[in-house]
């Protein structure tokens, strides 16, 4: 009877996780693709003669923006159909954590990768002669935007396939759910922020195609820094998955680990978006004033470092929750 209960719990966790993974995973990509399409409409109305080129660019941009939701689909299908092996309650927690990680983690990347697609369509309507440069710039920006979603998928796959059966149920169950929350939530801000920088980059290339090198460089640096909160999330997830926690039936031990994941996850959203705003500003103005690119880069990096500090505070509190309390 007990065996049957555990099996049922594992299935409940896997199905709920699968629903969360695909349900939330579809949100971001759909918004991103919709944004690209809305800007493509604006671009066609501005320059209907090259509607074919705009359509092509929109389609390519949407295809790349959809990657995050395909990752979510892969994880959801694994959760629904994969043989769960030896069922135990820790497995249930790991499967639920996997769904949470992938579902939340796909939102930011999906929305963010729609921005370069939309701005590239607008840019093509203004500067049809540089459509190739714009498409390439859009693809680089969109691809980098997918990195936080890839981090989330890595954590989800580790939770799915690692064997935690030797760890004590209490408080490891909370560590596994916390691991999913940490990377999944932190990826939202980084994906969205990276998209803001990439969108501004496409706008900048259309404005000043001759400085595409400077614009792409500052976009990539800005996106790299914007991804730091999701790396913090990944780090906390790894600690929660790999550290062995002593058995404890006290609820506060489990809550400390769950809160550690929540803290870095939620704490990473704002800095990811904020860093993206800083990068967006720098990229936009480099296109207008390339002679001061170095000053703009410095201002962006200092601004991002200050914005980043709140993510560091969140990570410090998470580490205290894991190692001290």
């Amino acid at each position: 009877m007990m065996d049957l209960d555990i099996q049922a719990w594992v299935k409940v966790a896997a199905f709920t996780g699968g629903g969360i993974a695909m349900g939330l995973g579809a949100v971001g990509a759909a918004i991103g693709e919709g944004y690209t399409a809305s800007q493509a409409n604006l671009a066609v109305s501005r320059n209907p003669k090259i509607s074919g080129d705009i359509f092509k660019n929109m389609l390519v941009g949407q295809a790349v923006a959809e990657s995050a939701s395909i990752f979510a689909l892969v994880v959801a299908i694994l959760l629904l159909f994969l043989d769960k092996g030896n069922p135990n309650l820790l497995k249930a927690a790991a499967l639920f954590g996997a769904g949470v990680s992938m579902g939340f983690g796909a939102i930011g990347s999906g929305v963010g990768s729609g921005f370069p697609g939309g701005q590239a369509c607008l840019g093509i309507s203004r500067q049809p002669a540089v459509s190739n440069k714009l498409t390439t710039n859009m693809l680089i920006g969109s691809a980098v935007c997918q990195t936080p979603a890839i981090f989330s998928m890595v954590v989800a796959l580790m939770l799915l396939f690692m064997d935690f059966s030797n760890a004590p149920l209490h408080p490891t169950w909370a560590a596994l759910v916390g691991a999913g929350l940490s990377t999944g939530l932190a990826a939202i801000g980084s994906g969205y922020g990276g998209g803001m920088a990439a969108g501004a980059s496409c706008e900048g290339v259309a404005r000043q195609p001759e400085v595409v090198g400077n614009i792409t460089t500052i976009m990539l640096v800005g996106q790299a820094v914007a991804q730091t909160p999701s790396i913090f999330g990944l780090l906390v997830s790894f600690i929660l998955m790999f550290k062995t926690f002593p058995e404890s039936m006290q609820l506060q031990s489990a809550m400390a680990l769950l809160s550690a994941g929540l803290c870095t996850g939620l704490g990473g959203i704002g800095p990811g978006v904020g860093n993206g705003m800083a990068a967006e500003g720098a990229v936009r103005w480099v296109a207008r004033n390339v002679t001061h690119a170095a000053d703009l880069m410095r201002t962006m990096l200092v601004g991002q470092a200050v914005s980043q500090s709140t993510a560091i505070y969140a990570m410090v509190v998470s580490l205290v929750l894991i190692f001290v309390l």
């Binding site: 790349v64 395909i70 892969v74 694994l78 498409t135 390439t136 693809l139």
Partner: peptide, 24 residues
């Protein structure tokens, strides 16, 4: 093979990235 099938599903995206990456 499941991972190979998942990679196969991203083949169009891969082709787009390879084409533009090599052009760059």
């Amino acid at each position: 093979n499941f991972p190979a099938t998942a990679v196969g599903l991203l083949m169009v995206q891969l082709v787009i990235m390879i084409e533009h990456g090599s052009r760059l």
